[in-house]
C-alpha cells in the first residue's frame, strides 16, 4: 500500500495538514499491516485515540476504549496548570467524580506528592475497568495511593473512608461531568466524530450534575475545602454560585487557552486551596 493512497483516504475527511500529521502517528504507533484499516476507520470519523488505543495525558499514557470518553487536551491543560499551583499543598484526599478513563485523578496522582490518596469514582463498569487498567499501566509514574470505586453521584456515594468524613481533613473535589445539554447535542457545536463514537452518557448532562456535586458531595462533607469542575456554559457557573455560600467560599472561572469558558473553581476562604486563585481568570461573587 503506497503512502499516497493512505493519505488520500484521510484527505477525504480531513484537511491536508491534519491528514499528514495523523498518518505519521498511525505509522509510528501501529504495525504496517494495520495502516490501511486504520486509515479507513479514520476517514469514517472513528476517533484517532480509539484506533491507536491510547492518548498521552500529562506524564501518563492512557488507554482509550470505546464506551469511555477520550481525555481532552482542554482537560489536560487545566489539570497540569492546577497541579503546578497545588504542588506544595498538603491534601488528604482528592476525589475525582465521573473519572471515565481516570485521566484527572491519575494525573494528579502523578503530579502531586503531598497527597495521601486519590479516589477515582464512576458509575459505569467500563470506566472502572479502564481506570484500573490505566492505573496499572502507569504505576511507575504514580506518587500516592490510588483507589478506584464504583458509585453514583445521584446517590451521594462517597468512598467509605475516614478521609472524607474527618472534618479537619483537607480534601479536594474534581470533576469533569457530562455537560452538553440535550438542545446542543445534535447541533454543529458537537463534532460528528464525538457524537457518533463517544458514549452519550459521558456527554449529555447539564445543571443536575453541578447541583449533585455541590449538594451531595461538597455540602454533605465538610472536609472538602476546594473544588475544580470542568464545564462549558455560564448557566452551569451560575448554578454552582447559587448553591454555595459566598461567606464561606471564594469562587472564580477559568478560560482555556482557546479563550473558552472551561472551569468553575472554588476554595474555602483561609484554606490552603486559596492558591487556586492563581489559575482563575475572573473571580465571581
Amino acid at each position: 500500500m503506497s503512502k499516497s493512497s493512505l493519505i488520500s483516504l484521510l484527505t477525504k475527511s480531513f484537511s491536508k495538514e491534519q491528514a499528514i500529521r495523523e498518518l505519521k502517528w498511525i505509522k509510528n504507533e501501529l504495525p504496517e499491516n494495520k495502516w490501511l484499516n486504520a486509515c479507513n476507520l479514520r476517514s469514517n470519523y472513528v476517533p484517532l485515540q480509539y484506533i491507536l488505543g491510547n492518548q498521552p495525558f500529562g506524564k501518563l499514557d492512557l488507554i482509550c476504549r470505546e464506551g469511555v470518553l477520550i481525555p481532552r487536551l482542554d482537560t489536560e491543560e487545566w489539570v497540569i496548570e492546577s497541579s503546578k499551583v497545588l504542588k506544595d499543598v498538603k491534601i488528604n484526599g482528592v476525589l475525582d467524580y465521573c473519572t471515565g478513563s481516570g485521566c484527572i485523578g491519575l494525573s494528579y496522582a502523578s503530579e502531586l506528592n503531598q497527597v495521601s490518596i486519590v479516589d477515582c469514582v464512576d458509575f459505569k463498569d467500563d470506566a472502572i475497568i479502564l481506570t484500573n487498567d490505566n492505573y496499572k499501566r502507569n504505576k511507575d509514574s504514580i506518587l500516592c495511593d490510588v483507589r478506584v470505586s464504583k458509585g453514583d453521584l445521584f446517590d451521594s456515594y462517597i468512598p467509605n473512608d475516614q478521609i472524607y468524613n474527618t472534618h479537619t481533613n483537607n480534601n479536594l473535589l474534581v470533576s469533569n461531568p457530562p455537560y452538553i445539554p440535550l438542545k446542543d447535542l445534535h447541533t454543529d457545536e458537537v463534532e460528528k466524530s464525538v457524537l457518533k463514537y463517544e458514549p452519550r452518557e459521558a456527554l449529555l448532562g447539564d445543571l443536575e450534575f453541578y447541583e449533585a456535586l455541590c449538594e451531595n458531595i461538597l455540602l454533605k462533607n465538610n472536609s472538602f475545602n476546594g473544588f475544580i469542575f470542568e464545564l462549558g456554559y455560564n448557566s452551569q457557573v451560575i448554578k454552582v454560585r447559587e448553591l454555595l455560600n459566598p461567606e464561606i467560599w471564594s469562587m472564580g472561572i477559568r478560560n482555556d487557552s482557546n479563550g473558552k469558558l472551561r472551569n468553575v473553581i472554588g476554595w474555602k476562604k483561609q484554606s490552603s486551596f486559596n492558591v487556586l486563585q492563581k489559575i482563575v481568570h475572573k473571580e465571581i461573587l
Partner: peptide, 20 residues
C-alpha cells in the same frame, strides 16, 4: 505568547481534536 492551534467552536467535550 503561547498559542495552541484549536478549531473554533465550543471545545471541551464537544470536540475531540487531535490538533496538539
Amino acid at each position: 505568547k503561547i498559542d495552541v492551534m484549536r478549531a473554533s467552536g465550543a471545545g471541551g467535550q464537544h470536540v475531540n481534536t487531535t490538533e496538539s
